[in-house]
Design a protein around this nucleic acid. Structure first.
Length: 173
DNA sequence: CGACTTTGACCCGCGC
DNA sequence: GCGCGGGTCAAAGTCG
């Protein structure tokens, strides 16, 4: 882990950021699954924004209801687009009830501190991208949450983080 | 010394 | 049925 990132992330929530560029949150089909897909984009900061608020809200409220006051302060812009799953309860939704939440964040490091501890368990090269994709699991005892991190194909300064499942616990302790 | 990364192999679903 | 792409396992290595 990186202490510098952690400290930055922790202290970031106290600052006030206003120069927030919101570069056209495009939900491409690549990561638009048939499940719930939400997207967070933004941060003119290269890294160190506070994702724990976002993550906490998502993990507690299951991605549709996102009215967390903290998230506004952190400039996390959320587009809760349940578009794909709105009229698509054909086949997948009956089998897979796992919620899937995708973030697209501007960052130069892919391991962002969201308040949880992650254990990497895999790395793969993806076909449509020159960048690898990393697979993480929550390292807390019997927590089923998985996380997938990859870089944007044509904008490597963006990182796409996909959470899957919800935590059993409040934090990493 | 324990917890975590790394990395190739294995597995599985899907399209041809 | 086979090959490919994506996801996971697990043994060995690394780090604190």
């Amino acid at each position: 882990m990186n202490d510098a990132e952690t400290n930055l992330a922790r202290s970031f929530s106290d600052e006030t950021h206003s120069g927030f560029e919101f570069p056209e949150l495009d939900l491409s089909d690549e990561w638009m699954d048939d499940d719930l897909v939400s997207a967070v984009s933004g941060m003119n900061q290269s890294y160190g924004y506070q994702t724990s608020d976002v993550a906490a809200a998502l993990f507690s409220g299951s991605s549709s209801s996102f009215s967390h006051p903290e998230s506004q302060r952190t400039n996390a812009s959320v587009a809760a687009t349940a578009t794909a799953s709105a009229n698509n309860q054909n086949k997948k939704e009956q089998k897979k009830v796992k919620e899937r939440v995708a973030f697209k964040t501007r960052s130069e490091v892919e391991v962002l501190d969201d308040g949880f501890k992650w254990r990497k368990y895999g790395k793969k090269m993806v076909k449509n991208s020159p960048h690898p994709r990393n697979y993480y699991k929550c390292s807390v005892d019997s927590c089923p949450v998985k996380k997938r991190v990859e870089r944007d194909r044509d904008d490597p300064s963006f990182v796409i983080t996909t959470y899957e499942g919800s935590h059993n616990h409040s934090s990493m302790n």
